[in-house]
Amino acid sequence: MIPLLVCDDSNMARKQLIRALPADWPVSISQAANGQEALAAIRQGLGQVMLLDLTMPVMDGYQTLAALREEGLQSRVVVVSGDVQEEAVRRVKELGALAFLKKPADPEALRATLAELGLLDLAPAAPADAPPAANPQQAVLDSLKVNFRDALREVTNVAMGRAAALLAKVLGVFVQLPVPQVNLFEVSELHMALNDAQRGQRLSAACQGFIGDGIAGEALLLFHDAEVSDVARLLKWQPRDDSETSEMLLDLASILIGACLSGIAEQIDVRFSQGHPMLLGQHASIERLIHLNQKRWKKTLAVEISYSLEGDHIHFDLLLLFTEDSVRRLTHKINYLMS
């Protein structure tokens, strides 16, 4: 049996990946939720082959690959990630990864990659008269419990990676990705969370409504005013007035929000109709923005993504706010993915 290590912070992602493994591949499967756990497992001989995520807490995939090299640990690594930026692929291969697959891994693409790398041939051949081996994946799959929050976080993780790849091309930068946060907020809690996150900074915000298949909400993209000139520089845009600045911000919002919503819609098999992005306010504090729009924000399922650009003091906070009425339908769609 080949010691296979699946490293991802999401139970949902690990379940999808283990389900995609070739059923006839004789592996003993271990799991890790971050790079630190993965290194400990590899030191114990549990990771001759490792399928590795990039965006994780504690120690991410890049740090894990660097640590493997530094310690001289032997593991044949295939990265499976939602961060599909061209620079991400280049970096992981430079750090020693053998291949890169995008999430969610397609079973045929995974088998082809494993075969091309010779990883399917690592185990000794079974004797001709040996009985058929049991599917090694099924017991692990049965033990993996996935809750709604974890599943939605993973769906968002894949979607935000696609949006980041598009943003990276537009701005010519490398986008650093966080682990998305998923919370069900009362309106007062949402206000407090936003206030705490921004700490009085001056903001401009773009909003874009979406609806489809019983799921509706608004995407809110927050720009920090102090960083707008740096964004313009990356875009090679020189706004002459507030009107042109607004146009620039709306274009950027359309890219990020549109790509993220499209990624989510594709995974849960819905088709979102999107409104035109609108500026909620410019040069306003978050308190003012909340006051102007509090009637639209009641109890909400909030998904928070904070993009930052490497080498620049620029970040965007993207909030996907699903209406309370949408939660049941969204839960149904997510449950179908988990089954």
Rank of each mutant, 00 (worst) to 15 (best):
Leu330Trp: 01
Gln198Cys: 07
Ala38Gln: 08
Val146Glu: 00
Leu114His: 01
Val78Lys: 05
Pro127Ser: 12
Leu167Asp: 05
Asp106Arg: 07
Ile29Pro: 02
Ile215Phe: 07
Gln36Glu: 15
Ala206Tyr: 02
Phe100Asn: 01
Leu141Tyr: 06
Leu234Tyr: 08
Ala139Thr: 13
Asn147Gly: 11
Pro178Lys: 03
Leu52His: 09
Ser28His: 12
Gly47Ala: 08
Ala126Lys: 10
Pro132Asp: 12
Thr64Met: 03
Asp142Trp: 02
Asp8Glu: 05
Ile18Thr: 03
Leu321Gln: 00
Leu122Lys: 07
Leu39Glu: 02
Arg233Met: 01
Met160Pro: 04
Ala97Asn: 01
Arg288Gly: 10
Ala125Tyr: 03
Glu87Trp: 06
Leu68Val: 10
Ser285Asp: 14
Ala197Leu: 14
Ile29Val: 11
Ala205Thr: 12
Glu189Pro: 01
Ala259Phe: 03
Asp225Cys: 09
Leu252Lys: 07
Leu321Ile: 01
Met338Pro: 04
His332Met: 13
Ile264Gly: 08
Gly61Met: 04
Leu166Ser: 14
Ser306Arg: 13
Leu194Thr: 00
Ala151Val: 08
Phe185Cys: 02
Ala151Cys: 14
Met192Phe: 15
Arg149His: 14
Lys103Gly: 07
Ser306Gly: 04
Asn183Ser: 11
Leu280Ile: 03
Val270Lys: 04
Gly200Trp: 02
Leu5Met: 01
Glu154Gln: 12
Ala38Asp: 02
Ser143Glu: 13
Leu119Asn: 01
Ser262Lys: 15
Ala33Met: 15
Met278Phe: 09
Glu86Asp: 15
Ala151Thr: 04
Ser285Asn: 03
Lys103Cys: 08
Lys15Asn: 06
Ile255Gln: 04
Ser339Arg: 15
Asp8Cys: 05
Val27Ala: 13
Glu37Gly: 13
Leu114Pro: 02
Val92Asn: 03
Met338Trp: 06
Leu39Arg: 00
Leu289Phe: 01
Glu116Tyr: 10
Gly212Tyr: 02
Ala232Ile: 06
Leu54Asn: 11
Met1Gln: 10
Leu117Tyr: 06
Glu37Pro: 02
Glu304Cys: 08
Pro178Ser: 12
Phe272Ser: 08
Asp106Ser: 13
Ala112Trp: 00
Val146Asn: 02
Asp242Ile: 05
Met1Lys: 04
Lys102Gly: 14
Leu5Trp: 01
Ala128Asp: 14
Met12Lys: 08
Pro136Gly: 03
Leu110Asn: 06
Lys102Arg: 15
Gln63Phe: 12
Gly214Leu: 02
Ala97Leu: 10
Arg288Glu: 14
Gln238Thr: 13
Val140Glu: 02
Gln85Gly: 12
Leu119Glu: 00
Leu301Asn: 03
Asp24Tyr: 10
Trp237Lys: 13
Leu318Met: 11
Lys295Gln: 13
Glu154Val: 05
Gly82Thr: 08
Ala284Ile: 10
Ser143Val: 07
Glu287Pro: 00
Phe316Val: 03
Gln201Cys: 08
Glu244Thr: 05
Gly209Cys: 06
Ala125His: 04
Val175Cys: 12
Leu166Cys: 10
Arg14Asn: 09
Gly258Ile: 02
Phe322Ile: 05
Asp150Thr: 10
Leu279Pro: 05
Ala41Val: 00
Leu279His: 06
Gly214Tyr: 05
Ala33Pro: 03
Gly72Pro: 10
Leu144Trp: 06
Lys333Glu: 13
Gln36Ser: 14
Glu94Val: 14
Ala134Gly: 11
Lys295Val: 12
Lys169Glu: 13
Leu220Val: 11
